[in-house]
Structures are given as structure tokens and as C-alpha cells.
Design a protein around this nucleic acid. Structure first.
Lengths: 277, 277
DNA sequence: TCAATGCTGAAATCATAAATTCAGAGGGCC
DNA sequence: GGCCCTCTGAATTTATGATTTCAGCATTGA
């Protein structure tokens, strides 16, 4: 009984319901789940019943209060939107599934990419690129255990288009040296995803103390570094139960690079020219 | 203003919001629209802000009360489920092309991902993963100027699931040392994309001479290293005229890692367990 | 037709959530 | 480095919505 969907409970219980309660049930199923998320009075009116009847209906479904019932609806809704493709481990045709591993993986990666684009406000993205294109002060990059390579990739590209790009490596011993030149208004880009790296908190704290502006690129669960960040670009990373993928962060990094290049073309083109030579 | 979606309003207003209000905005976008249907206190807690801040946030979006805001969310939800075919996500056509940069970039990246999946034969992909999961001999990784970070990323993951993983760095001086232990039947994964790195040809030549099996991950124009490769995984990278993106290579690398982990789970899980400890 | 039973919704009560206030913290700017 | 101004969240007040009560009405069976 506990783990059942609200709609499921209605179907189970509908025989036991009285006439007016059935109207409530029909109303809810008719615009599911929205009507149940409205206040009781509105639910009642839309369904052509009284508030009291709606409450009795909800109680008959086994919920101990109206808010409790609404919580169930919200959780159901959340569940649905969280997993766009139900990726259960239940064995389908195994050989077939194996053959399509790459396709399925890519489909999921595509979802993550699109989800990320929806999650990131355009103005936030623009602000990051514009700030990078200003060429004001230094620009530091850092990442965690795996995301450090993203920081490295981005550094390699940014070096081409602007001066003052530096990488902060993870070794505590060298951290003080690296931070020594950080000045107020400098920019720092930090990559951090789940199993958030504790050392990045230290780095961010130190950077914040030195008044650097922190840009955080993270996952949908939001690294604790966000506390120190001026700008945050969150990406979707979820791939099934066990594995998170950083592909969306990587593509976001590339988008930032591409856009920044575009914005700072007048100055960047000169640097690029002289590097080619 | 009246007819705008809540998400749209957030995107419009986000630059005017204060730090804590942005946390609220991100929280809502992160689990949209469910969080907004919860009581203020719950919204606040989930988003890491106070109730007061959430109320200010809602007011900043132009709603005259929290219930008013919730009604808007419900109507939106109702709207979406009513329309027979879910039309493509971001419906509003924005006049400002710049504001669309990220969307356009992501759309292109999605094309590349799908194109890559189409370009790579499933059997080729499976062969690479199966060979990696065998745990036979050593596994070397190398990349070019930018793709070296992909090699690094993959190395970091492969180290977790199998022994004998090494990275070949690009310095000619140390190359001889690194190659000294390469044995026939060892595996080498090389990343190389356009403006192909000449030094990788040398590396590949040397590896081939020592009878290593070379796996090449490259772009659609095919690195010259392919001449020495036993298996080739080509990806689409084209993004308009000036810029190639490596996001598809990155995701391919992640797919290989994920699949290899799956295939070698009996042995890999033990390693993972001991690393966690 | 007349009880008896139990469903229903209007109104009263109670609980909880929304809105407001304000003192203190934090950040930015000379 | 110090001042000022804005932002923030705890505490308080206000409002709204959930719950209960109960009188009346409908339905059913004798």
C-alpha cells in the first residue's frame, strides 16, 4: 500500500467510494495530477463536490491528511520527470541490449545535454563568457579527482585566447605558492561534481578570502563550493543508477570557450595568429 | 509579461536577483516545477535559503503572492499535459541570437553525438570494451595537444577498474623510457583529432614496432595514426566552419569506460571496493 | 408511507502556512 | 581599512486553508 501511485490507489479504492467521492476521484483523474495540487476548496469546486467530501476522499485513499496526499503527488511528479528513460536493470533481451549499449548511452547523454541547456540561464552563461572575454586580471582553473582534466582542457584552450591563465593543481603542498598572486577581481573557474572534493572547498575558501570571483561548473546536486561562487553553471550528469557522466560539463566547457573566443575575437585573433607562427 | 512561463520569467529576471534569491531560482529550475508546488518552507529548505527569501524571489518574478505563483505553475503543468504532442522544450523564439548561443551549441553537439553513434559500428565498440575488460597486458594512453586531457580522463577511470594502466606523455625526451616496457599484445589507446599531432605518428610507429595493439579514437577525417590501428572509433566533431568540438570523443570515452566496467564487473568491483577503503 | 441509516455540505473551529518586520551580517566601495 | 548600504533569515503577526461538526436530506427497506 505504501509505495503505490495515487492513481493506482484510486483504482483500488473506487468501489468503496460514495457518489460524491467518486466525483472527486473522476475530477482528479480528469486533470491529473494538477487538480490534486490545488487547495481543497478549488479541488472541490472543480470536481463538483464540497471540501469535506474531498477530504473524506483523500482519507479513503489512505492518506492521513491533505498535505500528505499532496506530497505523494509531488513525489510522483518528480519521479516521472527525473527518469526520462526508465533505466531499470531488469534484464531485457540481453544480447540485444548489449548490441545497443552505445546507442542507449548516447541517448542518455543527449538527454543530459538538453537538460543542462534548460537548467542554465542564458544570462548566466553569457555573464561567464563576457567576464572571461574582458581579459581583466588573471584566470585560475581547478577541478576535482576526475574533473581536473576538464580544467586542464579548458586551460589549454583559454591560454590561446587570453593572457594570465593558470591552473591550480590539487597538491596541498604547493597550494600556498599558487595562491600567492591571486588578486581581488581575479577570476577562478572551478569544476566540482558529486563525491565533491573536500580540497576544493579549501581552495574556494582561500580564493574567496582573496576576493577572487568564482565561477562554478557543477552537477545538478550542486557542489558546496556554490556557497562561494558568484556564477554557477549546473549540468545534468545522471546516467542510470550507478554512473554519472561528465560529458555535459565537457560540452559546456567547450561552449564557454567557443563563445568567449567569439566575444574576444579582436584581441584573441592576434594571439592565435602569433601562436600559429 | 502576463503570458510568460515561470521558467521564462526566471531567465528574464535572474540577473536582477540577489545571491540567495538565485539559489532559490536554481533550486526551482533543478526540480521544475515540483519544488514550487511545495509549501514555502520546504522550497526554502531544499533550495538552501530562508522562507523570506523564497517569497522575495517569487515577488521578484512578478507574482503578487505565493499561491498566485503556484497557480501559474499548475496552469503551466495542466497546459503541458493537455497538448497532445509535447512540443519541443523551449518553445519561445528569442529575438536575441546571442541569448540562444548555448542552445544552438548544444543542438549541434547533440547532432555530433548521434552522428558518432551512427558512424561507429557496434561490433567495433564492443570489441574495444571487451579487449579492455580482458585485463591482459598493460594499457597505454596518449593524446595530442588538446586530446591529451581526454587520455588523462580515461586513464584516471581505467586505473580504477584494471591494473597496468599507464599514460604516455608527449615529451620526446621521455618517450624512450616510457616505451621500454611495451610488450607484444599490450593495448594502446590513442586520441588524435585534426591538426593531427605529428608526434603521435612517431608514438604509434614505435608502439606498432613493439607489436602493441592500437585503438584509435579520432574525428571523421581520420588521423593518419589509423594506418597503425587495429581498431578505430571515429566521431563527428564538426561545429560550423571554424571550430571542432571534442565533446563526442569525450562521451565516447565515457561510454567505453562504462561498458568496460560493466563487462569486467567481477574483477573491477573488488578493486573499486579496496580503493574506497 | 414511515422510520432508519448514512451521505452531504454549510458553517465553525483549528492548524498551518504565508507575509512582514527588524536586527545583525556581509559585501562592496572609496 | 573603515564606513555605508544592502541583503538575509529568525521571529512575529496575519491570513488562509484544512479539518471537524452537525443539521438536514436522500435513499432504502419494511
Amino acid at each position: 500500500m505504501e509505495g503505490k501511485s495515487v492513481a493506482g490507489r484510486i483504482h483500488d479504492a473506487i468501489h468503496r467510494l460514495t457518489a460524491a467521492e467518486k466525483r472527486a476521484a473522476r475530477g482528479l483523474l480528469g486533470s491529473y495530477p494538477t487538480l490534486g495540487l490545488a487547495p481543497v476548496a478549488e479541488f472541490a469546486q472543480q470536481a463538483g463536490a464540497s471540501s469535506a467530501t474531498v477530504l473524506r476522499f483523500v482519507s479513503a485513499l489512505g492518506y492521513k491528511s491533505y498535505p500528505d496526499f499532496q506530497r505523494a503527488l509531488r513525489e510522483e511528479l518528480e519521479e516521472r520527470s527525473k527518469s526520462p528513460l526508465q533505466r531499470s536493470s531488469t534484464s531485457d533481451v540481453r544480447a540485444d541490449a548489449d548490441a545497443q549499449f552505445l546507442d542507449r548511452f548516447v541517448a542518455q547523454a543527449v538527454d543530459n545535454l538538453r537538460g543542462s541547456a534548460a537548467l542554465i540561464p542564458a544570462s548566466e552563461f553569457e555573464a561567464v563568457c563576457a567576464r572571461l572575454a574582458e581579459n581583466r586580471g588573471a584566470c585560475y582553473l581547478a577541478g576535482g579527482r576526475f574533473t581536473d582534466f576538464l580544467a586542464g582542457y579548458m586551460e589549454a584552450h583559454l591560454r590561446v585566447i587570453r593572457p594570465g591563465v593558470r591552473r591550480l593543481d590539487g597538491r596541498p603542498a604547493t597550494r600556498a605558492d599558487q595562491m600567492i598572486d591571486v588578486k581581488p577581481g581575479d577570476l577562478a573557474i572551478i569544476f566540482d561534481v558529486r563525491r565533491y572534493d573536500p580540497s576544493l572547498i579549501d581552495v574556494a575558501t582561500e580564493l574567496a578570502a582573496r576576493r577572487a570571483q568564482i565561477v562554478l561548473i557543477t552537477d545538478e546536486w550542486m557542489s558546496p563550493v556554490s556557497r562561494f561562487a558568484k556564477l554557477v553553471l549546473p549540468c545534468r550528469t545522471e546516467m542510470g543508477r550507478t554512473w554519472d557522466a561528465n560529458g555535459s560539463l565537457f560540452t559546456l566547457a567547450e561552449a564557454v570557450i567557443a563563445r568567449t573566443t567569439e566575444l574576444s575575437w579582436p584581441t584573441a585573433s592576434k594571439r592565435i595568429g602569433s601562436i600559429e607562427a
